[in-house]
Amino acid sequence: MANLHHPGKRWAPVMHLSKEGNDLKRVACLCVCSLVLLIALAACAPPLPAAVASAPPTSAVTAEQWAERYPMEYAQWAASVHGVAYLAGDMAAPGCTGCHGDPAGGETRTVPFRLNIPAKCGRCHADQQVTAKHGLPNDTYESYLKTFHGATVAYYRATDPAAERYEAVCSDCHAAHAIHAPSDARSSVAPANLLRACVKCHQGAGPAFATTADGHFRTDRMASPLLYVLELVYRIGIPLIIGAMLLYILLDILHRVRSRAGGGNQS
């Protein structure tokens, strides 16, 4: 095999450590080869497991017992979009045990419980059948994970579930029990209430901040034409620019190969 660094000599893996060439060249070779190795290793890394939470363990506590122990939370839930559907007989709608385990365990006060909230909501809101049945957007969970909040929470849930994080989870904006459709004036994320939800964490935020819609990052044409166009420009532009660069480099390589095969420099 040819030695790229020292033409005329055979390639040797220990070349980087040899005393041939000057130090600067060896450092440069090492950097370039390390970069190539890093990219190759990164491409081989295994994907992470699915991000949606598993169903909580079945609880023996009845709805009546929940109502007795947590009357305020129960009343908020019963009036919510989930509670109304559940009490009307839609058993697929989340009841108390749909999100909580046994209340005696005190799990809601633990750090992993908080980090797990989006993945719990995602069990239904990322399920295509459930969202289609109820006429809900099917990208609610995915679009949350694309935000600063969602990406951070998902990272720590996967790597360090005991980490205390303050990035917003679903219940911080949509409330834990009093959940209503955003079009409902009672909803904490209704247009009139949204800024109030933001300033709980982002003190000093103004009305423009609430219009950033950063709770869910959507770039489709209907949701945000500007973001759609921006993303489209990059998705087309990057392959074009990098493709043109690669094409030029390829032409140069072919020219050099041809010149060597021809036995001389054509320039």
Partner: peptide, 9 residues
């Protein structure tokens, strides 16, 4: 406000 998600992209 839209410049925030636009900046992210």
């Amino acid at each position: 406000g839209v410049l925030l998600p636009a900046s992210k992209i």
